[in-house]
Simulated scan of single mutants.
Amino acid sequence: MIDALTSLPEGLTALAFWVLLAFSFISSFITVALGIGGGGLLLAVMASLVPPAALIPVHGVVQLGSNAGRAGMLWRQISGPALPGFVLGSVVGCALGGVVVVELPPSMVQIGVGAFVIYSVFAKPPKWLARWPWLTGGVSSFLTMFFGATGLFVANYTKSLALPRHEHVATHAALMTVQHGLKVLIFGLLGFAFSAWAPVIVSLIVAGLAGTFIGRHLLNRMTDHGFKRALDVLLVLISARLIWAGLTG
């Protein structure tokens, strides 16, 4: 953590770093405890604090570490048959998204992320996302290159498998690990300088793994309804501020 503070990348303050650290822990706790929501929360907070050009790549690496850790802790509960079609679609979706994403101006990234998170709160994903894993992987992976947090789309597919709660969380984490891993690979090939953000990324991943570990032990001890409603309100407020910043910036 100290190394990260002494080598913060341009555009990130020490206060912003500590806020991101706290929300990395909270977002991972939320995701493993509730199955969904943490990635969108972290994205919305990061979009208010991280330079737009670095937002999606850095969020992708942090989410890769968080989801990989969650999948590793619950690896025995991963549903293997859910992976092949999704992986194939994800490869195509990330490749196509990488061709287009470099053309987006920073303000459009802010507005797009804010609008997408609000959409994920109020809208129900199309039913076809649950029927065709290759199409779910393709569409969600294409969108994640621009908007980052597409866990809601992937969760709709995971839900259609009718898995027990632990298996649902584990399988969703494995699918998101694949998606974020491919996204990070594409951004690396496009030339994003991950090394400048490495100390911050490592710190956020460690905080996320701590949240995953604690959230795992509370997985069967929480009531979901009230907490999810509060999370939705928070997501909408942060996203509205983000859209305003994009419009006025």
Rank of each mutant, 00 (worst) to 15 (best):
V184Y: 09
L143Q: 07
N220K: 10
G211Q: 06
H180I: 04
F116S: 00
G249F: 08
A207M: 06
G35K: 07
L12I: 05
A198R: 02
R229T: 14
P84C: 09
V61K: 08
G112M: 02
A16Y: 07
R70T: 11
A173D: 08
P126E: 08
A230T: 09
I205V: 15
L209Q: 08
V19H: 07
S120I: 08
L190T: 06
V58A: 03
S140T: 15
V233W: 15
N156T: 15
L161E: 05
A245R: 11
T223D: 13
K159A: 12
V154P: 01
F227P: 01
A198G: 08
G137Q: 02
T171R: 08
R241I: 07
M73W: 06
L20F: 08
T223C: 01
A53P: 06
G38H: 05
N67V: 05
T212N: 15
T223L: 04
A16G: 15
G89Q: 04
V19S: 07
T150M: 14
I118E: 02
T158F: 01
L182D: 02
V169D: 03
G188Q: 07
L242K: 04
T248Q: 10
A123C: 13
W128Q: 13
T171I: 09
A155M: 07
V139P: 01
T31F: 02
R131C: 05
L143I: 09
S79Y: 04
I2W: 10
G80N: 03
V87N: 07
L74R: 01
F153A: 12
T158P: 00
Y157R: 04
L83N: 13
A155K: 02
S90M: 10
I238K: 13
T13C: 11
M145G: 08
L143D: 07
L42Q: 01
V58P: 00
V117L: 03
F153Q: 14
V109T: 10
F116T: 00
A193Q: 08
R216Q: 13
S90C: 10
H172T: 11
L182G: 04
S28Y: 01
V154D: 04
L15F: 10
L64S: 09
L21P: 03
S27R: 11
F122Q: 13
T158C: 08
A130Y: 01
S160A: 15
A33H: 04
L209E: 06
F192A: 09
R216F: 10
R76P: 01
P81N: 07
G38D: 10
Q63M: 06
V200S: 05
V139M: 06
S107D: 14
M222D: 04
A198D: 04
R241D: 13
G246I: 03
G35Q: 09
L74M: 14
A230S: 11
K228C: 00
C94L: 11
V236Q: 05
L242C: 08
V121E: 05
T144P: 03
V101E: 11
L88D: 02
A71W: 04
S195V: 14
T6H: 09
H217G: 14
A22D: 09
G151E: 09
L129T: 02
V206H: 00
A95Y: 11
P164W: 10
V62G: 06
L8T: 02
G40T: 07
H59P: 02
V109N: 01
N156A: 14
H168P: 00
